[in-house]
């Protein structure tokens, strides 16, 4: 099973070829690209469109990876619709800082994989912030209540993180090797594979 990158944000002037090359160099076989309209394959790397929005009607219509961002506890309300329309729940910087065990319990009841972006966490860490939400999430992941998925959350091809960095990042936070493997390889590959097949 090859690794998949779940979050790359396409900005003006960026070359998709560069993204594919960076993905290949960092050990990924497919990338979900925010801002891409159609699925593409460049030098063997699959580029899949991604949409991150809280608007469920937009998520419903979108063909590609559908991500629902969570910022605060109130964002986790419309359970049945969310479960039907979203492929993945994305933790924003605010959510990583503020959410507590109760909200993480709600996430676990939802049953969708939860995405943690390495770049978002690194930014928060560099600012010296206490990541209450991340800690609660990792505890839930360790007890198999939440399926964790890591991504880079990059907006430049150079910022796509290698698989090794994602693995080290989770192990530094105390995740076991098997949980890390699941969060870095298995869950992202399964999510993107499901999107490609549908």
């Amino acid at each position: 099973m090859q690794a998949a990158e779940l979050a790359y944000v396409l900005r003006e002037g960026a070359e998709l070829r560069e993204v594919a090359e960076a993905a290949e160099a960092t050990g990924h076989a497919s990338v979900a690209v925010e801002g891409l309209r159609e699925p593409l394959t460049i030098s063997g790397i699959e580029l899949v469109p991604r949409l991150t929005t809280r608007d469920l009607s937009m998520l419903r219509r979108f063909k590609g990876l559908r991500a629902y961002p969570v910022e605060k506890a109130e964002d986790l309300r419309s359970y049945p619709r969310l479960r039907r329309y979203a492929h993945i729940i994305t933790m924003t910087g605010n959510a990583l800082r503020r959410l507590g065990p109760r909200e993480v319990e709600r996430l676990s009841n939802l049953g969708l994989p939860v995405e943690v972006q390495v770049n978002t966490v690194l930014e928060a860490l560099a600012s010296g912030l206490w990541l209450r939400g991340l800690r609660a999430l990792l505890t839930a992941a360790l007890t198999d209540r939440v399926k964790l998925a890591t991504s880079s959350g990059a907006f430049r091809p150079q910022l796509i993180r290698p698989v090794e960095v994602k693995r080290a990042f989770l192990e530094v936070f105390g995740l076991t090797q098997s949980h890390t493997f699941e969060a870095v390889i298995t869950v992202p590959a399964n999510v993107l594979g499901k999107v490609v097949r549908s």
Partner: peptide
């Protein structure tokens, strides 16, 4: 080892890219 890998990856955050 893992700490060092994360620190290397975080250099861009500290230098603002």
């Amino acid at each position: 080892k893992n700490h060092a890998i994360v620190a290397l990856a975080a250099v861009d955050v500290i230098t603002r890219g």
